[in-house]
Amino acid sequence: MASVGGSSKDGLTLNLNPMLDIFSILITFLLMSFSTDPVSHDVDAGIELPQSNTIVALDEVPTIVVTKTELRVNDNKVADIVAGDVPEKDRTQGAIYPVFDALQKLAEANKRVNKVKSDDPNAKGSTGALTMEMDKGHRFKLMKRIMLSAQQAEFVQFKLMVQKELN
């Protein structure tokens, strides 16, 4: 055992067994809950995700993040959220113009990348899917506005982030 000071044999000894017990339990717990998901993403502090029974894991970091107060595309704030909706100045035909603008640029970039990746030289590049992280308290009205903006930028596939229920 590790001894602490003292010259005599009956000096103080530090009992390490309780510490080892704690370590063992902690390691067992951490190994059990060790995530093997392809992407590890920390949910924004201002967002509470709805619970779901889905088993499909998140496979890319979210492009659109909708907190209680702001809307971000690729970590850049594009609009404020006031009383659960975007201000009227940002709206066009039910969609959100700054979101459309940001997504259009992203769509062009995605198309170019996917075209290069494709084996077929004549293939048109696809825009791919958009991953969206949204607070569970928001109404569908806001989600619809974002989806409409994305639709105009030629995005049709969405991956909506949810919190997996632990069974």
Binding site: S35, S52, Q157, Q163
Partner: peptide, 13 residues
């Protein structure tokens, strides 16, 4: 450690 497991629901428009 990831204490919150995140999943996705795939939808189309």
């Amino acid at each position: 450690a990831v204490f919150l497991s995140v999943g996705i629901l795939e939808v189309q428009i």
